[in-house]
Amino acid sequence: MLTTDIPPNQTIYVKNLNDKVKKEELKRSLYALFSQYGRILDVVALKTVKLREQAWIVFGDVTAASNAVRQMQNFPFYDKPMVSLETLI
């Protein structure tokens, strides 16, 4: 399924993150990076085996999340190209 097939949502799913970065630093950096697109309500990043290299950024509105997805696709973040996809929660 292509990103364009997914209905817009205020939460975006980001993967291919550098798993060498500590969780709190990762959350702060994601917050700082994505806040340029709008108000962020939460950043969820876990370091479990199944969830490492992934995060969810919850925006205050759908427009901000959609803009962030378009602009941040393959953005180099801690030496890895970040892949961002809108998600449904």
Results as ranks from 00 to 15, higher is better:
Tyr31Lys: 13
Leu46Lys: 07
Asp61Met: 06
Lys50Val: 11
Val21Asp: 11
Glu24Lys: 15
Ala32Thr: 03
Lys47Pro: 14
Ala45Asp: 01
Arg70Leu: 12
Thr63Ala: 10
Gln36Trp: 08
Val21Thr: 12
Asp61Thr: 06
Ser35Tyr: 08
Thr48Ser: 15
Leu33Ile: 05
Val62Met: 05
Ala55Arg: 10
Ser35Cys: 10
Lys50Ala: 06
Val43Ala: 01
Lys23Tyr: 07
Gln71Cys: 14
Thr63Phe: 10
Ser35Asp: 11
Gly38Pro: 07
Ala45Asn: 15
Glu53Thr: 05
Gly38Thr: 11
Leu41Val: 14
Leu41Glu: 08
Gln71Asn: 15
Val49Asn: 15
Ile40Pro: 01
Leu46Trp: 12
Leu51Thr: 11
Arg70Lys: 13
Ala32Glu: 12
Gln73Tyr: 06
Val58Asn: 08
Val44Phe: 06
Val62Ile: 14
Leu41Ser: 02
Ala64Ile: 03
Leu26Thr: 12
Ser66Tyr: 08
Arg52Tyr: 02
Phe34Thr: 02
Ala65Arg: 03
Asn67Trp: 09
Gly38Arg: 11
Tyr31Pro: 05
Val44Tyr: 09
Val21Ala: 02
Arg39Gln: 12
Ser66Asn: 08
Met72Asn: 03
Gly60Ala: 12
Gly38Lys: 09
Leu46Arg: 11
Leu33Glu: 01
Ala65Met: 02
Arg28Leu: 08
Ala55Phe: 06
Val44His: 13
Ser35Val: 07
Trp56Phe: 15
Val69Cys: 14
Gln36Ser: 13
Asn74Phe: 10
Ala68Cys: 11
Glu25Lys: 15
Lys22Thr: 05
Lys27His: 00
Lys23His: 09
Asp61Gly: 07
Leu30Ser: 07
Arg70Ile: 02
Val44Glu: 11
Ala32Ser: 06
Trp56Gly: 00
Gln73Glu: 14
Gly60Val: 13
Ser35His: 12
Ala45Lys: 04
Trp56Tyr: 09
Val58Cys: 10
Asn67Ile: 00
Gln54Thr: 15
Gln73Pro: 14
Met72Val: 01
Ala32Phe: 01
Thr63Trp: 06
Leu26Gly: 04
Lys27Ser: 12
Ile40Gln: 01
Ser29His: 09
Tyr31Leu: 07
Val43Leu: 09
Leu26Cys: 11
Asn67Tyr: 06
Lys22Gly: 06
Ala65Ser: 09
Gln71Trp: 01
Lys50Leu: 10
Ala65Asn: 04
Tyr37Ile: 01
Gly38Ala: 01
Arg39Gly: 04
Leu46Met: 04
Ala65Ile: 00
Val49Ser: 13
Val62Ser: 08
Leu26Lys: 15
Gly38Trp: 03
Asn67Leu: 07
Phe34Tyr: 14
Val58Arg: 10
Arg70Pro: 01
Val21His: 07
Arg39Ile: 03
